[in-house]
């Protein structure tokens, strides 16, 4: 039973069977990652291009490790080193890569819809590694895998996404994926960072973190993008931290077991305190480990389907 699509562009509208297949398959790859030789020959002879038009260390390394551990051959291309600087269009870049006989493209791009466009102009399988403020499906899948691993299920689990919802592709992909799997999703943040009509996606909206935490099993804390500070979405970082920073005191006040996740990289002392990030409630490092397994699962399922 293969995936219903040749590409992974986003989780909007994806059948829950596809999500389940990816998560179940990732369990097998978690086992592979525990072996002395952390490598299987499944994608031998396949070439994967990692096309990163936006800076990323973590996601790119996670994808590259996943590719190598499936015995695929990765080729990396980043924006500052490429012909994009010289004014080449995405279509021409894609066409050129295509002529070099590649099988899959993993792409991050600043424009929403870039992966979708690419999937229409190349024959290779396309995996979206983040397109603007639109989607980042593999991050959401690894978040879901981590929650399921910890709590045993996603059905009826209460997940609150905290922070800059308006500019977050992680938040959007999580909302689509979690809703498809029957989880209950809420978002929490200052009014300037919560998009209007987000409730139409079937999520509850909180502006008060303590109130949001009173009903949550999981907090998914988003990074406050310091580079966006000059656009005045927040009065000061200190004020944000006081209103929305996840601290041990807040977790204690919530009077229920809450686990904390973060897609990284974390700003210690801004959206999450160091004690929480390193503490017993944190699943942050588990997310990093699961990220490789989940990306192996996606690459394997797309790369071996006909």
């Amino acid at each position: 039973m293969p995936l219903s699509s040749r590409h992974l562009l986003g989780l909007d509208g994806i059948p829950s069977d596809d999500i389940k297949l990816i998560l179940d398959t990732a369990t097998s790859f978690r086992e592979v990652l525990e072996r002395p030789i952390k490598k299987v020959p499944s994608l031998q002879g396949k070439t994967v291009v990692n096309l990163f038009f936006e800076n990323s260390t973590r996601t790119r390394i996670s994808f590259e490790l996943a590719e190598r551990r499936l015995s695929a051959d990765p080729v990396n291309m980043s924006a500052d080193a490429s012909s994009v600087r010289k004014g080449e269009t995405l279509k021409d870049t894609a066409r050129n890569i295509e002529m070099m006989k590649i099988d899959m493209v993993v792409m991050r791009h600043a424009a929403a819809g870039a992966a979708h466009y690419l999937s229409q102009v190349v024959r290779a399988n396309v995996i979206n590694a983040g397109d603007g403020a639109h989607e980042h499906p593999t991050q959401a899948l690894l978040d879901m895998y981590t929650i399921r691993e910890k709590l045993g299920t996603l059905q009826d689990v209460n997940i609150c996404i905290v922070g800059d919802i308006a500019h977050s592709r992680v938040a959007l992909s999580n909302i689509y994926g979690l809703r498809a799997m029957g989880a209950k999703v809420s978002v929490c943040g200052p009014r300037t960072l919560i998009p209007a009509e987000i409730d139409r996606l079937g999520v509850r909206v909180h502006y008060d973190l303590d109130e949001a935490m009173a009903g949550a099993d999981v907090l998914n804390v988003l990074r406050i993008q310091l580079e966006r500070q000059d656009r005045c979405f927040l009065p000061t970082l200190r004020e944000y931290s006081q209103a929305y920073g996840v601290t041990p005191e807040r977790l204690a006040r919530a009077k229920r077991p809450i686990v904390v996740m973060h897609p990284g990289p974390i700003n210690r002392g801004v959206e999450i305190s160091a004690d929480v990030a390193d503490g017993e409630h944190s699943l942050i490092l588990q997310q990093v480990l699961n990220g490789v397994a989940v990306r192996m699962s996606v690459l394997y399922l797309l790369g071996t389907a006909n």
Binding site: M1, T25, S28, E31, V32, S42, T304, N306
Partner: peptide, 14 residues
């Protein structure tokens, strides 16, 4: 794996 028409379900090694 590459020319198998039906993708097999992974059951996992234990």
């Amino acid at each position: 794996l590459r020319d198998n028409l039906k993708q097999p379900i992974l059951r996992g090694t234990d």
